[in-house]
Design a protein around this nucleic acid. Sequence first.
DNA 1: TTAGGGTTAG
Length: 517
Amino acid sequence: MVRGSAVVPNQYTFVFILKACSCGLRTSEGEQIYVHAIKLGLDGNVYVMNVLIKMYADLGLIVLARKVFDGSISRDLYSWNSMISGYVGAGDMHGARGLFDEMPERDVVSWSTMVAGYVQVSSFMESIELFHEMLQQGPPPNEFTLVSALAACANLLALDQGKWIHVYIKKEGFKIKDRLLAGLIDMYAKCGEIEFAHTIFISVDSSKQTIWPWNSMIGGFAMHGRSQEAINAFEQMRMTTRIAPNKVTFISLLNACSHGKLVAEGRQYFKSMASFYGVQPEIEHYGCMVDLLGRAGFLKEAEDMIVAMPIPPDTIIWGALLAACRIHRASEMAERIGKVITESDPNNIGCSVLLANMYSSGGRWTEAKIIRDKLGGMKKTPGCTSIELNGMVHQFLVGDRSHPQTEQIYSFLDEMTVKLRIAGYVPEVGEVLLDIYDEEDKETALARHSEKLAIAFGLINTTPKTPIRIMKNLRVCGDCHEATKFISKVYDREIIVRDRLRFHHFKDGICSCKDYW
DNA sequence: TTAGGGTTAG
């Protein structure tokens, strides 16, 4: 068009072509075209400038995007929102907030971008806070905002807040479908209310035209260990709709098989995902399979799968196999796999802890000490458990003494330990950190795990029979899992624990995972 | 009749 025709491109042309550069990640063409636009005097056109901001942001060139933004003669709401979205995409919530605070006026998109941005960087508290600010002094939220706010609640285990949003959605007459429906199902499932999530899922029938609500439901069942129901949901979708499953569907489905030890089903779904559904397995799917096979005891098959993978395996995959070796006490294989992990990632804490423990229990003190010394200098993620009470989220770290009710919690814990012992609980000191040698100290360390602090806080502050919901950032430890079984019986409470990977529902001394986790 | 900003799931 530029070389061979008499037609001169106008502002519309540049918006289309710059957007193409943006989508195709073609930096140099984009910049050449920008020069054309300048030559034609279109650098004053707000549409052209805005798409240019977006283009630079999409290309990850946030500084250049800002340059265009700052230098633009005409700026409107779209310019500000595009620039904020650029910062959000770069994970720079500081930059985003700076612009958001100084912009002359904010519309629902500005607010939604920020609420979603905080979710993307896992600043869920900030996301909810901003959402509340919006309700007080901003424009009314729309579906976009609500989906993000629900995601923040889901991640915080903030059930009361999530319920409030559900009421708001109904009160304001939003049509509950697709993404919003998925968001609600996901929020309820992640807050431990899997039954209610399912109720909502079946209550909205005509509008499940997309994969989103299905994935939320299948994923919800999977994380609650309701494997057969996850499979049933998938089969129902297959038989009654024309919706195509995607990669997330299969991750959830394989996860469900893994939690339920459904090895044959898992193998079969993994096989059919590419051959029948046309979804190519990615590293995460292989990860699910290694976890499924490994934890079920098929260590050799799991390793063969890693070796035969068309994608280079990462330390997460090897880590899944290593964890399986620990469960099945396959120390030789563990040592071999441990070396593979350490080679590519010398600072892998989980791997080092496991190896050190293994060496110690095998009496190989020198080797254990080498790893232990190295571990001392590494930064470990502290165990953290949170619990919502009256709409407020309380967090506890291991041995935390910062909570206002600390004294009460610790004396309750002492009393609780006695009661649990009488009921037959025996601490599993094998799970304690490596640097404690005294058996009694080990038990004290266990008693102060963040899970137990949060449960004690919950028992103190809620009326009898109220279910207690807690969330841990890591996997729950073996001792806490055992102790919680006893607590549920001794105190007659349902205790719902969400760890990094799944839910455990404790009731009458039994856990829903049947100790397979 | 043609253009520009925000969505969540493992």
